[in-house]
Design a binder for these strands. Structure first.
Length: 632
RNA sequence: GCCGGUGUAGCUCAGUGGUAGAGCAACUGAUUCGUAAUCAGUAGGUCGCAGGUUCAAAUCCAGUCACCGGCUCCA
């Protein structure tokens, strides 16, 4: 079975494409195809040419700006300049205007093949030191592209033949950003101008719509709107406060995670948050990971270190007594909270934080168990991720890098184990040759979300280093002491980050089983409120998270509020329902479910929770209940 | 850390040197209402923080913290 079953199941296709205030109806219409640059030779030429037009416009308006490089990106293009004064947003408008003017002049773009000396002379004539550096790295033949009479750039092409092929209504300059010459922060800081360009204004409009869609799904915004979590200035950047609704959801995720691990033969550990700094010396983290760690603290004359990783603790637990080969494989998991120093400016909502909880696990096994254990991890990973409607993966296998530790035979065995497991699982993967860690090969898994973005979450890494450093052993059948194989693995990666990705995937429309508030009971009048309260009590007793809206507002307002808060099921209770002993159900996913008796509602909700279902399955409620009860 | 931008009420935002504003949310009262906003009223801010300039600073200046878009890095 291929890894990518279908993205259509991710729930997001049926997610409402609307502002928080409009009703969810049906699916997002099949949108216009917006090819990536690498998929469209036409767009590639347009975007590449557009970056030349950009550079020409900039040099026209800012003669002191020096050009560097200006490639296409998958959705547009950019150009890096070394300019004495920073570009402002206002400058972008002027630059865009100039670009429109250049395009309007219908300038030809011509490819010229020149010899190295000619190229160098031309560059020297214009005082463009970066170009000179680029030239030095080029192979013959040297080509350049002219843009009209006045401007040219070293470039391999391809380009459009004439700026008349560029649509001045189908491009946009998007932002200014700092970037480093050749991507190295030790080099000069350049100013990068990003733009996007399309064949038609309609494509540009669709591109903008998708950007807005991503904005609508932004977990930071949804987190605030639905009161799930916050990050407090006074506490510090990158530290997450889980509010009751977010905390309840996290608890549901954790409970599910724990249950799945117990079922799959794991035991759970709890380990400390700090430890003597010597532990980190032994593990090697102090040497190789220091810049990512919170500084040490002194207690009783000893230095303690806040943990950036859980591995050494699991290793110590293993080493706490002598192990037999009969015990292996040992599978230990922990929701371990770690703290890592992140540089200012890199924090991002829940996606990049300084304190987070890893769903970490370590498997200690015999060499011959590697294949089975990896396969087992792959199966568990698929099981857990698909519960959150992530069913489409991109998998990378990373092999031995040049500088690494360990014997060839062990590397081969381990790498073969990973390959064998992937093949047995039937998953296709890309090989990242030499991309493994210095201590072992690994499998990384990226999940695709509802709008096609890839996120790396799961990782499975073999480790030949820590068992060595901590001198881990087991007693083999022949009585000799041997070194166990150690596998690190995480499925969510970080609970915080996964929560953010999941929130964006569902656009805040969480499945029934996961919603903090699953059912909201809406009394039409005060007279029926006691019945609503009674039903709420029954639901709560059955483990269903229901509440009664006591605001006293009119039904229309109650519905509106409930929908804005994305409550999966709104249950209207008026006189009819009170008499019938039920509620009229309005589901975000299933629409109007009609009047259901209390017993049916409770039963369906309990069943949905057990099955971790996205919605309620109420059989026959619509027809029978409403028909009979409305008759008199 | 770097480049650019932004910090004003819970949220979205207006306010460019002279008494801090709006909408929504919240709270109180009236209304007892049938599937996306009933009406009226009340309360809420040392304008991110700490300095400076000024008779006077949300507003000008330098600093700092945080956030946003990127770069670099990364779970």
């Amino acid at each position: 079975m291929p890894a990518s079953v279908s993205a259509a199941v991710t729930g997001a296709d049926t997610a409402p494409a609307h502002e928080a205030g409009t009703i969810a109806t049906g699916s997002v219409p099949v949108a216009m195809v917006l090819p990536k640059t690498s998929e469209s030779p036409e767009l590639l030429r347009i975007r590449h040419s557009m970056s030349h037009v950009l550079a020409m416009a900039v040099q026209k308006l800012f003669p002191r700006a020096q050009v560097t490089i200006g490639p296409w990106t998958e959705s547009g293009f950019y150009y890096d300049f070394d300019a004495p004064d920073p570009f402002t947003e206002a400058d972008l408008k002027a630059i865009k205007k100039e670009m429109v003017r250049i395009i309007g002049k219908k300038l030809p773009l011509e490819r010229l093949e020149v010899n190295r000396q000619d190229a160098e002379d031309r560059i020297r004539g214009q005082n463009e030191p970066y170009k000179l550096e680029i030239l030095a790295g080029l192979q013959d033949p040297i080509t350049l592209y002219t843009l009209g009479e006045e401007w040219w750039d070293l470039c391999a092409g391809p380009h459009v033949a004439n700026t008349s092929e560029l649509n001045p209504k189908a491009f946009e300059l998007e932002s200014v950003a700092g970037a480093y010459w050749r991507g190295d922060e030790k080099n000069a800081q350049l100013q990068r101008i990003y733009g996007t360009a399309w064949q038609t204004p309609e494509q540009l409009a669709e591109y903008k719509r998708r950007k807005e869609e991503a904005l609508r799904r932004d977990h930071r915004r949804i987190g605030t709107d639905l009161d799930l979590f916050s990050i407090e200035d006074e506490a510090g950047a990158g530290l997450v406060f889980w509010h009751p609704r977010g905390a309840r959801m996290r608890l549901l995720i954790e409970d599910y995670w724990r249950a799945a691990h117990f079922e799959d033969g794991y035991e759970l550990l709890y380990t400390p948050h700090v430890a003597d700094i010597d532990l980190w010396k032994t593990s090697g983290h102090l040497d190789f990971y220091r810049e990512s760690m919170f500084g040490p603290m002194e207690v009783d004359g000893r230095e303690f270190q806040l943990k950036p990783m859980n591995c050494p603790f699991h290793v110590l637990t293993y080493a706490s007594r002598l192990r037999s080969y009969r015990e292996l494989p040992i599978r230990w998991a922990e929701l371990g909270t770690v703290y890592r120093y992140e540089r200012p400016g890199v924090m991002h909502g829940l996606m990049r934080v300084r304190g987070f909880t890893q769903d970490d696990a370590h498997v200690f096994c015999l060499p011959e168990q590697i294949g089975d254990e990896i396969l087992r991890v792959l199966n568990l990973t698929e099981r857990i991720l698909s519960t959150f409607d992530f069913r489409h993966y991109e998998i990378h296998l990373s092999t031995r890098p040049e500088s690494s530790i360990g014997e060839d035979a062990v590397w081969d065995l381990a790498t073969q184990g990973l390959i064998e497991a992937l093949d047995r699982k039937g998953w296709s993967y890309k090989i990242d040759a030499g991309g493994g860690a210095f201590y072992g090969p690994k499998i990384d898994l990226k999940i695709e979300d509802a709008i096609g973005r890839l996120w790396q979450c799961s990782t499975i890494q073999l480790d030949f280093n820590l068992p060595e450093r901590f001198d881990l052993e087991y007693v083999a059948a022949d009585g000799t002491r041997r070194r166990p194989i150690m596998i690190h693995r995480a499925i969510f990666g970080s609970l915080e980050r996964f929560f953010g990705i999941m929130t964006e995937n569902y656009a805040g429309d969480f499945p029934f089983w996961l919603a903090a508030e699953q059912i909201r009971l809406l009394p039409v009048t005060d007279d029926v409120r006691p019945w609503a309260e009674a039903l709420q009590t029954q639901l709560a007793a059955a483990g269903v998270r229901a509440s009664v809206d006591r605001s006293g507002d009119r039904l229309g307002k109650l519905i509106r509020t409930g929908e804005q808060q994305k409550i999966p099921v709104l249950a209207v209770i008026g006189e009819r329902e009170a008499e019938a002993g039920g509620a009229s159900l309005r589901s975000r996913r299933e629409g109007d479910l009609g009047l259901a008796p209390a017993s049916a509602l409770i039963q369906a909700a309990v069943a949905a929770n057990q099955a971790r279902a996205a919605g309620l399955a109420i059989k026959g409620a619509v027809g029978s209940a409403t028909a009979t009860l409305q008759a008199p």
